[in-house]
Amino acid sequence: MALKTNLFSVTLSVEGMTCGSCVQSIEQRIGGFPGVVRIKVSLELKNATVVFDQALQSKESLAEAIEDMGFECTLTETTT
């Protein structure tokens, strides 16, 4: 077993980011959330890939957290 079974990866599309500092603030804030293992935000693809612990976070709670920061966030695809 390579990974813990409750780890989950999700790609969220994020609109409204225009520069590196937007990317950084999302990575810092969401990356600091409990249950978030890894986060990668892409300015070009306008999305955020988050690896998280399902016991502590959900796709919805992450999307809501990004929305809360003032960006438009929608759920796109999910991979395990």
């Binding site: 409204g16 520069c19 500092s21 937007c22 603030s25 809360d68 920061m69 003032g70 960006f71």
Partner: peptide, 13 residues
């Protein structure tokens, strides 16, 4: 804030 994206985020919240 460093760009329009930042101020846009502030506007939305």
């Amino acid at each position: 804030m460093t760009c329009e994206g930042c101020s846009g985020a502030v506007t939305r919240v």
